[in-house]
């Protein structure tokens, strides 16, 4: 049994990372910056899905909502509450921005879970742009709203004077690590989940362990559905936290 599995295992080839390859859609060849690729296709589908939910779903403007409209309203309520609870009332000015991020990531994660789909949020380039845009926006807001007062964020007044410089260094480092962790958390979760599913699916080639592999794939898939939502939620909530730091920098 063991030797048989061993023998078959040599035929097994896992390519868990193939699903992340960026390919041109219409032609073979190099990927230029303007080439329509599978990234372009899935970005387009994400925009379309968001449009379908938020615009088409609410076209009835019904007092008693339809199914699509109540989902759209739920998303609105979730993000609205998040922004107003964490960033405060003056953070509501940036609500459309946060909502855009949330809807984009939610649909990217969920559409990425479809079989044969491409997950745009599994790419560091994509999440990096999202996180950097949050970082730059928040820093700009912080300096515009509070001026030099924004630097109070790094000068912990509640701590004893002696250790404040040390804390300031730590705070500055943690501030600049934010976009890195912000982007890698999302991308890493997506890569990990999809790669693990792919590896389990690869094991299904061995007849003896195929049932176990299939059960494992189903379990991982369910877990990934949860992760897809939670990572979008976490990304949005951290955006709100950073926004709060920018609007009210004093500790």
């Amino acid at each position: 049994m063991a030797t048989e599995a061993q023998g078959e295992a040599t035929d097994l080839s896992f390519h868990p990372m193939d699903q992340f390859i960026v390919r041109p859609l219409f032609s073979d060849g190099p990927v230029h910056w303007y080439t329509p690729t599978n990234v372009t296709l899935w970005l387009f589908l994400i925009v379309l899905a968001t449009l379908g939910l938020l615009v088409l779903g609410t076209r009835g403007r019904a007092i008693v909502p339809t199914r699509g409209q109540s989902i759209a309203e739920m998303a609105y309520g979730l993000v609205h509450k998040m922004v107003s609870d964490i960033a405060g009332k003056d953070g509501l000015k940036y609500f459309p921005y946060v909502m855009t991020l949330f809807m984009f990531i939610v649909f990217a994660n969920f559409l990425g879970l479809l079989p044969m789909a491409f997950t745009v949020t599994s790419h560091i380039a994509v999440t990096g742009v999202l996180a950097l845009s949050v970082f730059l926006t928040v820093t700009a807001i912080g300096f515009i709203k509070n001026g030099a007062h924004f630097l109070d964020l790094f000068w912990v007044r509640s701590a004893p004077l002696a250790i404040r410089p040390v804390l300031a260094v730590i705070e500055v480092i943690s501030y600049f690590v934010r976009p890195v962790s912000h982007s890698i958390r999302l991308a890493g979760n997506m890569i990990a989940g999809h790669a693990v599913i792919k590896v389990f699916a690869g094991f299904a080639a061995i007849a003896a362990v195929a049932p176990v592999a299939i059960v494992a794939v189903v379990g991982m898939y369910a877990f990934e559905i949860l992760v897809a939502f939670i990572q979008a939620y976490v990304f949005t909530i951290l955006t709100c936290v950073y926004l709060k730091d920018a609007l009210h920098p004093s500790h």
Binding site: S181, I184, R185, G188, N189, Y233, V234, I237, L238, V241
Partner: peptide, 14 residues
């Protein structure tokens, strides 16, 4: 809770 979990998880993701 979610913020705390995210911070704890981020290091594992690293």
């Amino acid at each position: 809770l979610f913020i705390g979990m995210a911070f704890a998880e981020a290091l594992g993701i690293f």
